[in-house]
């Protein structure tokens, strides 16, 4: 049985289906990328999977339990979420932001049990944030800040972590750093699902790719199996050369938009 399984999730808003009949599974120890063009329904599907949005049909289960039936606190102990919008209002110190990751266990900036404090320390260490603990959030660079948000999500030490565009607006170095941290977290036996827009990055780091187009999951498999010129043309409307080397790693070279042939 998969650690996490979504079956036939649908979401209809004001008459139009944003997500339709989407099924996928996440396995422990894998990094899964969710890709698809803007407006394909990726964020909606993540929110359905997390139970933050009530599905019109279908269900999501973690360790065989229905997520929609769980209390928010129970759910938060199994699933961590890193949303696309990560507004910070107050210039809080890094450690306090990461400490909020322990919310579901009753922890917070001002009260951490020794177990909570250890989890916060581990999360800070795993995101290379030692020495930043007392830095105010508004003094950090974009790359540092995204590591802080990741550390916050990891601090809950959940078996499943779901992230929405964690590397948007990051320069290549920071983007690779964040994906390495993801890879590392999945190496510890967690299942990670992340929306990505950078195809070369996806090809390089993802163990599996879920392809989404117009509210539907249209393919699901390893980069090797699913990353094909035909699919890129179908989903994104781009032409690309794809090369698989002897070790099975996939490289991708995007040529440009496909010709409009109706």
């Amino acid at each position: 049985m998969s650690l996490f399984a979504a079956s036939r999730l649908s979401y209809v808003a004001s008459g139009s289906a944003l997500v339709e009949d989407a099924s996928f599974a996440l396995e422990a120890g894998t990094l899964t990328a969710l890709i698809g063009p803007n407006g394909a329904g990726k964020t909606t599907m993540l929110r359905l999977a997390l139970g933050l949005l009530e599905a019109s049909a279908g269900s999501a289960q973690i360790r065989g339990r229905n997520i929609a039936a769980m209390r928010p606190i129970e759910r938060a102990r199994l699933l961590a979420y890193l949303p696309q919008q990560r507004p910070l209002v107050w210039p809080q110190p890094v450690r306090d932001i990461v400490a909020l990751g322990r919310f579901a266990y009753g922890g917070g900036p001002s009260h951490l049990s020794s177990g909570d404090a250890d989890a916060v320390t581990r999360a800070i260490a795993s995101c290379d944030l030692e020495g930043f603990e007392e830095r105010a959030a508004d003094t950090l660079s974009g790359g540092e800040l995204s590591r802080v948000h990741l550390a916050r999500a990891l601090a809950a030490e959940t078996p499943v972590v779901i992230a929405d565009e964690p590397v948007a607006a990051l320069d290549p170095r920071y983007a690779h750093e964040i994906l390495r941290l993801f890879k590392c977290a999945s190496g510890e036996g967690r299942a990670l699902l992340t929306v990505l827009h950078d195809l070369p990055l996806t090809a390089r780091y993802a163990d599996r790719i879920i392809w989404m187009s117009k509210g539907r999951v249209i393919a699901d498999g390893t980069p090797n199996e699913t990353l094909t010129p035909d699919r890129l043309r179908e989903v994104f409307g781009i032409e690309a050369c794809i090369d698989v080397d002897g070790t099975g790693s996939v490289s991708i070279d995007i040529l440009g938009p496909s010709a409009e042939d109706g």
Binding site: L52, Y81, P83, Q85, R86, L100, G101, F103, A104, G108
Partner: peptide, 20 residues
């Protein structure tokens, strides 16, 4: 008061953290 601490990270994150 505890939920207010979680809201510092935005509503979406707070909901993900388990706040009703």
């Amino acid at each position: 008061r505890r939920g207010l601490a979680a809201l510092a990270l935005g509503e979406e994150t707070a909901a993900g953290l388990g706040l009703d």
